[in-house]
Amino acid sequence: MPMLTNILRKKPALGPGMWLFLGLFAVLILIIPHITGLTTTTLLSRIYILAIFGMSYDILRGYTGIINLGHALFFGGGTYIAGIMFSRMGATLDILLLAVLVSMVFAAIVAYIMGQFAFRGSGFTGVIACAMITLAFGEIGRHSAETLREYTQGADGLTFRVPLMFQDRVMMYYYALLFLIAMTLILRQFVNSPTGRVLQAIRDNDQRAKFLGYDTKKYKLIALVIAGMASAAAGIMFALLTRFANTELLTVQSTLNALLYTIVGGTGTLYGAIFGTAFVQLAQNYLLELRGIHEIFSRWLLFFGAIYVLVVLYMPKGLVGTYLQLEEKWRKRKIAA
């Protein structure tokens, strides 16, 4: 499947078959809400939005080599900010714009402060300190949401209304799709920019990037701020979709979800997050349907953790990465033969 490979490698060489395939695929994506039920439509909307959460993590893990265990803070923060503002100030478009503004500022500031502490060290101890500090920041977020009951309803979760134009499930599907496309283009622009290339140099060899004269801490901060903002934006979309926020969104588990989307899909590929999110969400849905057969299938986290561990151990490049690797091998063999 050379054409799939070309798309994944980001340098599409489009033949006629390719155009046909892409065209059919695009049409399918566009008409899906009209040929399936609301459940599927909502599930797909969910995948589109969560894919950006995953992609924002790929900026960190895949492109910069950072492990951020408090990444849920941005996503959950976006959802909560939107939710609190809708429920306190009314569910209108103006408020939505304000919520977007507030959560972008929130994400940027929190990311900046988090990074200031998390990126102090370098090498082995630096990675560890970074993991632990981001974990602590994430816990502060979760803890705050739990204790600031007046605003967040604590552990019960916050239910809220959203602006009228987002209440229709089918329309919401198109907004989510638009969001996915727009954010993917923006993030792709970012990783292919000169800044993005420096990030990859840092990922490959932190020390060498430093010797080359790059202020690695500054670049890591940029990556975290961008990833944080993208993640918060996904959080707002998630609020519009689910009209509900609870502290689950802010837990380490939530961060691990994003991590799983990117590592299943393939880190450092950006698009991998879309495949990963789709795979994980569909698998979760499928397993829940099997619940009737045996109780074990309702233990999603058991499967989640198992997939996660196995992927890290045996498929560190994820679905997309592994495919590209195998394809490369086949190609070489063909040339050799």
Binding site: I67, L69, V127, A131, V252, Q253, L256, L259, I263, L301, L302, F304, G305, A306, Y308, V309, V312, L313
Partner: peptide
């Protein structure tokens, strides 16, 4: 970090 976190979940 990734593996031990996953084991924690399981």
């Amino acid at each position: 970090i990734l593996i031990t976190l996953g084991l924690g979940v399981v």
